[in-house]
Design a binder for these strands. Structure first.
Lengths: 228, 228
DNA sequence: GAGTGGTCTAGACCACCAA
DNA sequence: TGGTGGTCTAGACCACTCC
C-alpha cells in the first residue's frame, strides 16, 4: 500500500483532485503524513517536493504545505541541436553559411545582450536543410570575446554546434512567436514574403559576458511539440 | 567547501564544462564521489539526479553515469490560465462566448482525441480580451461525457476555467506553431486574413477518456517567453 | 553474476519565518 | 520563538542491466 514515494505522490495528488484538500488548503505536515503512510519522513518529503516542482503544491518553512491556488501547468521543452532535430525525423542534415561579417548590431540587440551600444559583433547568417528543403533560416549575433583566439570553422559547422561544444553557458532566455517572413527569410526559405513563420529568439550569457543572440525562422509547417 | 548537494552539483558541472569529463565519458560512481567530497552517498545522488533531470548526465544502473553526448537544453514552460496571463500584464480580463453547439468534429480532431469518427462533440468558440483588445480566439471541442449531468455556465466563465476546477486531467499534449489567420480568426481578432498568428493546440485526457481539444490563436505581437 | 544506481530508514541538526 | 520544511548521515536492501 505504500511502496515508494511515487505511490505517495499519486495518493496526495488524488486527494487534491478529489477536493479532499481544496485549493489553498494546508495539508498535513510531513511528519503527520509519514505516520499515516507508515514510512520515513524523507519519503514523504520526496513526494511533496516533486509535486511542488510540478506546481501543484506550495511549500514554505513554518507555514507548511498548501495546495496551489493557481494551478499553473508546467511543461518541459527539449531544445535539441538542429542537426539532431532533423535526423530524428529521418532526414539528412546539411548546412550552408550565407554571411559572415563584423557589424554594429541594432540597438535592441545590444541592449538585450547587455552590451554597450555601437560595439561591433560578429554576424553569422546561415541556412539549415532537412534533406534538400530549407528548414531554418538563422540570423546570429556573436560576441567575439567568447571566441578568443580560436578560429572555429563556421563554414563547416554551425555556430551553435561549435558553441555548445566549446562555450558553457550560465543563463539564457527564449521567446517563441509568429512573424511574417521578411525579404531575407523569404529568399532563404523559398516562400512568399509575409508567410507566417514560427520564430525562436534565443539569447545566452556566461556568468560574466554575453555570448550570442540568435533568431531562428522555421520553414512553414513546423510544429513544436511536447507533452503535459 | 562541501556545504550542500548544490555545491556538489556545481562542482560536477564545472568539471564537465572544463572538459575534465568530456562528452560521453563515464564519471566516477556515487560511492567514489561521496568519498571524494566527504559526504554521504545520498548527497551525491541528489546532485547527480538533478543534473540528469537537467539533461546534463545520463544514468543507468550497472552502466554508471555518463556525460550526455547530445546536450539537449531543457526549458520549462509555465502555462497559466488565460485570465492570469492577462492580469499579470496589468490588464483587465474579459471573455465572450461566440458559439456553443453540438457538432461532428473533423476527422483529424476525432482521431487525435482517440474517439470514434462521427461522434458529435460540444463545440465552444470564444474570445478572450485583454483590456478592450481581443487577445485570444479560442476554438474548442469538448467531450460531453466529462461534463456528465452538470450544467456549467460557459457564458460566464471559459470552458478552460471550468475544466481546470472540475475535471482533473491525467495526460495531454501541446503543439505550438505559426498559422495564417483564418477568416474566423480575422473577424474575431480584427486583423486581416493571413496575418501570422501564434497558435497553441492542446489536447487532454483523463485516465479513461478524452476531455478536450482546443486551438488558441493569439493576437499578433504575442510572445511566449521563458528562461533557460 | 556482480556492479551500479534507486530507494528507504531512523535519526539528527539547521534555516527560515509566521505567530 | 517554536514549528515546519530542507538537508545530511550511515546503513541497508533492491532493481536493473551490462558483462
Amino acid at each position: 500500500m505504500s511502496r515508494g514515494w511515487e505511490t505517495i505522490r499519486a495518493d496526495v495528488l488524488r486527494r487534491i483532485q478529489a477536493r479532499e484538500w481544496g485549493p489553498g488548503a494546508t495539508i498535513p505536515t510531513e511528519e503527520a503524513l509519514s505516520r499515516e503512510f507508515g514510512c520515513a519522513r524523507a519519503t514523504v518529503s520526496r513526494a511533496l517536493r516533486d509535486l511542488a516542482a510540478a506546481g501543484v503544491l506550495e511549500r514554505r518553512r513554518k507555514a507548511g504545505t498548501r495546495v496551489a491556488l493557481a494551478p499553473v501547468r508546467r511543461a518541459t521543452l527539449d531544445i535539441p541541436l538542429i542537426r539532431q532535430e532533423v535526423e530524428r525525423r529521418g532526414q539528412s542534415y546539411s548546412y550552408r553559411l550565407l554571411r559572415d561579417a563584423v557589424e554594429v548590431p541594432p540597438l535592441p540587440v545590444s541592449l538585450h545582450l547587455r552590451l554597450p551600444p555601437q560595439v561591433p559583433l560578429r554576424r553569422l547568417i546561415c541556412l539549415h536543410f532537412a534533406g534538400d528543403q530549407p528548414f531554418i533560416h538563422e540570423d546570429r549575433w556573436l560576441n567575439p570575446a567568447v571566441i578568443g583566439g580560436l578560429r572555429p570553422d563556421f563554414a563547416g559547422q554551425s555556430a551553435n554546434a561549435w558553441l555548445v561544444a566549446n562555450v558553457p553557458f550560465a543563463s539564457g532566455d527564449i521567446t517563441f512567436c509568429a512573424e511574417a517572413a521578411t525579404a531575407a527569410d523569404a529568399a532563404a526559405l523559398s516562400v512568399p514574403v509575409g508567410t507566417p513563420l514560427f520564430v525562436v529568439d534565443r539569447t545566452t550569457w556566461t556568468a560574466q559576458a554575453a555570448i550570442t543572440r540568435v533568431r531562428l525562422a522555421y520553414a512553414p509547417g513546423y510544429r513544436m511539440h511536447t507533452t503535459l
